[in-house]
């Protein structure tokens, strides 16, 4: 059994009880950064066992985005279609496999994002097709962005924290 969350708590306590009293209060940088480090350790404690789920979720969302893009590409766009299809296959296979590691999930999601980015910038596609692709990217980005806002909400950049869905709901 992994005990990382326990260790993060111990690190946090060490900083608060052992290190903080020794920090020179006249050093503003040290005084400002120590609470931020403590805060991040606390945040990480709430997220560390969800990172794998997050990676699966994000790969799933990029697969959905790429599949939607593929459906909107004209048959004449053979190179883009072939590259997209190849990355979709690899991503889908990995996501369906229980033994796929976290790093691999992240890498495949990133590769899919790069492929989608390349396709939407393809100047050889007609304006109408590119507009349709752009609209789809905007639409299919929503769940990803909603998730990321919820994930990072404890950092305090949200004007109305209460309007966000919990990460449990999203994962």
């Amino acid at each position: 059994m992994d005990h990382s969350r326990n260790t993060l708590g111990a690190l946090r306590k060490s900083l608060l009880d052992g290190v903080a009293p020794a920090v020179d209060r006249s050093d503003p940088l040290a005084s400002e950064q120590l609470p931020l480090v403590v805060d991040y350790l606390e945040f990480l404690g709430t997220r560390i066992y969800r990172i794998h789920e997050r990676s699966r979720f994000e790969l799933g969302e990029y697969l959905r985005m790429a599949e939607g893009l593929l459906a909107r590409l004209p048959q004449s766009a053979t190179a883009a279609t072939a590259t997209l299809a190849e990355h979709i296959d690899a991503g889908r296979t990995a996501r369906e496999c229980a033994s796929t590691g976290t790093t691999e999930l992240i890498e495949l999601a990133s590769a899919l994002a790069t492929t989608v980015s390349t396709v939407v910038q393809d100047e050889s596609l007609s304006d109408d097709v590119r507009r349709a692709l752009g609209r789809w990217v905007v639409e299919s980005s929503r769940p990803l962005l909603a998730f990321q806002r919820s994930w990072y909400a404890p950092f305090g950049f949200e004007a109305d924290h209460g309007r966000l869905r919990s990460i449990d709901e999203l994962l």
């Binding site: 994002a113 980015s117 939407v120 990217v137």
Partner: peptide, 8 residues
Amino acid sequence: EDLPLMDV
């Protein structure tokens, strides 16, 4: 990493 939204 890439973020397709930025390219759109």
